[in-house]
Write a protein that binds this DNA or RNA. Structure first.
Length: 415
DNA sequence: CTTGGCAACC
């Protein structure tokens, strides 16, 4: 029986729907992602005057956050002045975080002005926002607040802190916090494993995975993404393939698209390019741009023109304006002396106006964000920055560092 | 019967 039919039947009966009925309906439409039906309930809510009920508004906020965009969420939120409670603030923050809107900190300041005290849901959201920037400065402030209020003991806050420190690259803090946690769950373990894997500590990640299993915590699909990428980073290809099959046979977890991408990365990065392509051909998903880009990058490293050409052409079929695939394909044609195709591709790029998007990086210093892009020398302290950069580059080379892609792509001073 | 299925490949 569908919720809308039950609702219709109820309206024809002697029972009158109340705000609880409405909330249940909204929950149902939120989980089935039914925007149109959710909107109809919204109209009903307005007609029957339930809009003055704060819990109904909160459920509306959640429904729009899941089924629509932020403008619908803010429309409701702005109409709620005077009746909003802690849940309203939290639901709106969750919506901002979900839609990558950078207003979580603004909402935190606003809720403070409205005399609402943050709870563990608020802190979990704010920590999530610290992790995406990422901002260690703000993260430390939230950590202090969590200690002061005792919210640190809350599992979601603890996991949020572990994830925040991981994303900020301070694995020591993440691990310390993890050790102080009496009862780490699958999320805590996975955050740490993924963190170690991402920063290149594959061995440590795999050791953590082993300890986790020994302690009887059941890994899930996210844990395995971490495990597979850990294997990929340190070149443990056969171990990675072993974990990939273990995932299904021992834990009954069916591989998602992410797991398949990890296996492609695992094979391609180590130079087993043919196997990577045959894995792509037999995996249960249509290959997307991510997997072909992975293969393409690996072909560049391992100097494989034949598969590289296939990968680049596949990327361009899915995204005809992909500039880096154009450039790499050009290089592949050139490396095999295929000058006709080089000329053809260069002409095509000029006529379609495909240009390489400039790379950007940024760093947060105190309360300002400093942005840098290629060949941009507009920063007021540029001379000092390049002096330090030059020293660092020398030190790195003396230590034996060879940049990815070789020295020809390594520029100390822009031309 | 109102906020959280938190953590994820390049």
């Amino acid at each position: 029986m569908k919720p809308c039919h039950t609702f219709q039947e109820m309206r024809n009966s002697k029972f009158t729907p109340d705000e609880i009925t409405v909330r249940c309906l909204l929950c149902a439409f939120t989980s089935s992602n039914s925007y149109c039906q959710g909107k109809q309930v919204h109209s009903y809510v307005l007609k029957k005057g339930f809009i003055s009920e704060v819990s109904v508004c909160n459920t509306l906020l959640t429904m729009y956050a899941k089924c629509s965009d932020l403008s619908d969420v803010f429309d409701i939120f702005e109409e709620m002045e005077g009746i909003m409670d802690l849940v309203s603030w939290n639901a709106t923050m969750t919506a901002c975080l979900k839609h990558n809107h950078n207003n979580v900190f603004g909402l935190l300041r606003m809720m403070h002005c409205f005399d609402h005290e943050p709870d563990h849901v608020t802190l979990t959201n704010v920590l999530g926002a610290c992790a995406v920037v990422p901002s260690l400065d703000k993260g430390y402030q939230v950590h202090c607040f969590a200690l002061k209020t005792g919210l640190e003991t809350e599992a979601s806050v603890m996991n949020g802190l572990i994830d925040m420190y991981t994303k900020c690259g301070v694995l020591i803090n993440a691990h310390k916090l993890f050790d102080s946690f009496s009862d780490p769950d699958v999320v805590s373990w996975s955050s740490l494993i993924v963190g170690y894997a991402q920063f290149g500590y594959g061995k440590e990640a795999l050791e953590l995975f082993q300890t986790m299993r020994n302690r009887g915590v059941k890994p899930n699909h996210v844990t395995f993404v971490g495990v597979l990428s850990a294997c990929s980073r340190v070149g443990l290809v056969d171990e990675g393939l072993h974990y990939y099959s273990m995932m299904e046979t021992e834990y009954g977890i069916l591989p998602t698209r992410e797991h398949c991408s990890c296996v492609v990365d695992l094979l391609a990065r180590s130079g087993r390019l043919k196997e990577a392509v045959s894995f792509i051909n037999q995996m249960p998903y249509d290959p997307d741009i991510v997997v072909w880009n992975t293969v393409l990058a690996a072909c560049k490293t391992h100097q494989n023109a034949e598969i590289g050409r296939h990968a680049a052409e596949s990327v361009l079929r899915l995204d005809p304006s992909n500039s880096s695939a154009h450039v790499l394909l050009c290089n592949i044609y050139a490396s095999t002396g295929n000058w006709e195709d080089v000329a053809r591709l260069r002409k095509l790029m000029r006529s379609t106006g495909v240009r390489k998007a400039p790379g950007q990086s940024w760093i947060e210093v105190k309360d300002g964000v400093h942005v840098f892009s290629v060949e941009d020398r507009s920063h007021p302290q540029m001379d000092e920055i390049y002096m330090v950069l030059g020293d660092l580059s020398l030190e790195m080379m003396e230590a034996g560092y060879v940049p990815y892609g070789g020295f020809d792509s390594f520029e100390v001073v822009p031309s």
